[in-house]
Design a binder for these strands. Structure first.
Lengths: 124, 124
DNA sequence: CTTCATCGTTTACACGCGTAATCTTTGCCC
DNA sequence: GGGCAAAGATTACGCGTGTAAACGATGAAG
């Protein structure tokens, strides 16, 4: 269970692998260049760090490597979210929603979706 | 609008000021010693950094300072939560709840409270 | 074969953070 | 008033991170 923590910048690199699946460094560099203006060098470094953390795997194909995510997006979402909930809301979801509700930060759409969700949960 | 970011350790210090209100360094040291085993020195440093970030204010009374939080807890909760939602869930609440739902991380109590919340929102 | 371009690896460096010891000032007691 | 204790300020230091340049290996082209 490699529990290495993933930094902000690293997660941006992971994001392209989650989206596009296995890719070469070059492809990652290209894709990640959309949201962040990073030098090729920078992306290489981040890939290296992700390798060390075993959050991605590299497989040699011809002369270059194909990188694949090892850490699953859902797994990462869980880690990050739970850590915030633990730190700020006693580990539970409802208080966070309550906070947003108090501050009128729930959109119509949010409310609609939330309603759906709890309905489904009760129908089980 | 001081938008200085608050570190984990710093937030533990702020937490005691939020809970107890204005307090001397000594009191903060004592209170924070419950959850974290920090040297007095460490707490002083954190208070200093919070001052620099203008997240707390210090008022000289006699020979010592009384520290008060400037940043409000609710404000801090918002910042932290919104930053996570933005980074991971497109800035919306429902997808986060959906994630937890998928992973069976919603307790009975959460569901009950969520139901209540949306009910209230609709009754408005 | 030699040369060059291309990949990946190493090294770099400033900054914030966690953690703390040390220094300095200053009010208080004798 | 001089020394001491307490409070705050300064300095410290290793580590991760964001950001990137420099280096080294190696396959491809001539």
């Amino acid at each position: 269970m490699s529990a290495e923590s993933i930094s902000e910048a690293e997660s941006a690199v992971l994001a392209v692998l989650w989206e596009k699946g296995p890719a070469t460094a070059e492809e990652v560099v290209a894709a990640v260049a959309k949201p962040r203006a990073w030098q090729e060098s920078t992306v290489k470094t981040l890939l290296g760090r992700l390798l060390k953390k075993r959050a991605v795997r590299a497989e040699k194909v011809g002369r270059r490597f194909i990188y694949s995510p090892t850490l699953k997006r859902e797994e990462w979402l869980s880690r990050e979210s739970e850590s915030l909930l633990d730190r700020l809301y006693g580990g539970r979801v409802a208080p966070l929603v309550a906070h947003f509700s108090r501050h009128r930060k729930l959109s119509k759409r949010d409310v609609r979706e939330l309603k759906h969700l709890i309905q489904e949960l009760e129908d089980e």
